[in-house]
Design a protein around this nucleic acid. Structure first.
Lengths: 144, 144
DNA sequence: TAAAAACCCTGTAGTAACTACAATGTCAAG
DNA sequence: CTTGACATTGTAGTTACTACAGGGTTTTTA
């Protein structure tokens, strides 16, 4: 299987596959005489695993950890895997909470606009300029 | 007001303020003889506006656009501002939907693990390896 | 008054997870 | 035998910052 085929089989851009290889998530495949990458079924499976994890919004570091457990299972693996997943679920739930608050604020802001025409008196811009009123999501601006 | 004061007044890291200046979001302030930036009240207001928008998860490009309307109000401004906000609300709502689906999948995955001990048969890793079963968030992996 | 601490400056590089070239090489079809 | 699709490496761009390094200045403190 050449890289293009693997790409379509896994719905992953070619460049991303090469990126995963550079990052050590995918093992280096064998090469043809002309230096083309040649993949086996195993590669496809591993790539699909990665993509599934990514689809679940895990970071590449988390994926790396899971792959490590797949590659060399130890006795306390299951527990650790479970923990990782548990933590991830927590993050997602928190993010949903934050976005809900955000949505409410945005809707409130939008509704301030209804009824004004000119920008000078537009409630939206005024609302965004307010200092304490709409301190928005106060926490770390830095969520994903 | 020196940059440090502006930073504490706006709860924004100093480096971020300089970054906004480089990006053209904040106008270049005057300087002291020793080349220190000197800010006025206006700067603080503008920075607060930016931070509020960012707190609402708007991109800097969106903020830039809003600032443009603040700076030079035209006749059809209010409408455009409204549209921008409307679109933004849509994005947030969509993202919440996606995360909800995600959460459900993660929980289902976690529950597959209950009852197994060793990694070889751990339902979580097996679930993540499956091809069609948990295609996760199928769409663009690339949401924020 | 002098030294130390706290602040400021510019410029560059790093972050995550890709994406997008540029410049080149290879292979299959017509 | 040429055209087009595919492959290669390497580098730079994306977003919104963050973190230095290597300097200068100002304020505080002893």
């Amino acid at each position: 299987m050449k890289i293009g085929e693997l790409a379509t089989a896994s719905a992953t851009p070619v460049e991303t596959i090469r990126y995963y290889e550079r990052e050590g998530l995918l093992p280096q495949p064998t090469r043809t005489a002309s230096n083309y990458r040649v993949y086996e079924e195993q590669h496809l499976e591993r790539l699909q695993f990665i993509r599934n994890c990514r689809g679940l919004q895990m970071s590449l570091d988390e994926v790396r950890e899971l792959l490590r457990y797949k590659d060399e299972p130890a006795q306390d693996c299951a527990e650790t895997v479970d923990k990782l997943l548990e933590a991830h679920i927590g993050h997602v739930a928190l993010r949903i909470q934050e976005l809900r608050g955000l949505e409410a604020q945005l809707i409130a802001l939008r509704d301030r606009c209804r009824g004004t025409q000119d920008v000078e008196h537009c409630g939206i811009l005024a609302g965004l300029a307010e200092t304490p009123a709409a301190p928005a999501v106060k926490q770390h601006l830095h969520v994903r």
